[in-house]
Amino acid sequence: MSQYILRRLMIAIPSLLGISVVLFVVLALAPGDPFSELATNPNVPPEVQAALRTKFGLDDPIYLRYLHWLAAMVQGDWGFSFVSRINVDTLILQRLPTTLYVVGSSQLLALLIAIPVGVFAATRPYSLFDQLANTFAFIGFSLPTFFTGILFILVFSVKLDWLPFVYTDVPGSGIPWLLEMIRQAIMPVMVLGLFQAASMTRFVRSAMLDVIRLDYVTTARAKGLGQAKVIVKHVMRNAMIPVVTLIALQMPAVFGGAIVTEQIFRIPGIGSLLISSILANDTPVVMAVTFVFACLVVLFNLIADVLYGWLDPRISFR
């Protein structure tokens, strides 16, 4: 198993490198030059400009610039934010836990909804419950997160006045503070979690339906096992294998949804950091946050691979 995880890690590194190449090429192809302001400034003589350009390596061929940039990223030197005047890595580390907290709890909520509903619907295909679940799932993933967010604010904050619609990072401790933190996270987590749950329910249902017809399930029933035991122990474990892949493939969309949700509820995570840096033309932060999102996606793919090995031991011996 540990050998399998190691092998998966070795596969994750080239894809991270590939992503970093894509990001760097995009940045290099983009019109505009970090020194364009300097070039139009008459007080800076051309020799100084040229010297600065050489010093920062802007005239080097593109692969050398890429290697320099990569070396700096690996060493943890992520540059300096133009706007907040602090190092980019400190800025991101401040914001990252909030994003992970919201995304993590919403994924958990989605799993808690999708697995029971999907399994129950698959055991009674085309029943009333199945059709209802299908319809809701269809509506759920057709509703974009920004619209559900607004609807939730309209209903729960404006009309009912139950929940706050702005997420604040209030300092404090104790039970009341904890309750307040949970209360303000309810809406963002619901918005993101329900959106995820909708597509996951469909995955779970169709994967269960594929497995439930197989002969070994009939065998398990024939030897007298109860329905619950057959479903949970025999069908679910195998049905979860494709579901894990599909969930991993959904991760880019999850982080996209997280950006929108953070923007609606003004959650101080890295998604809203990305938007505010784009609006403020803060290139180092934009680059770094995009790269962090890419790393998170690769990380979740890695976790999915490890889960795979646990769900189906045959895979880890290949």
């Binding site: 992503i19 894509v22 969309a253 929108v260 890419a294 996606v297």
Partner: peptide
């Protein structure tokens, strides 16, 4: 497929 689409 593993690129984060919205940030990109």
């Amino acid at each position: 497929l593993s690129l984060p689409q919205l940030p990109l």
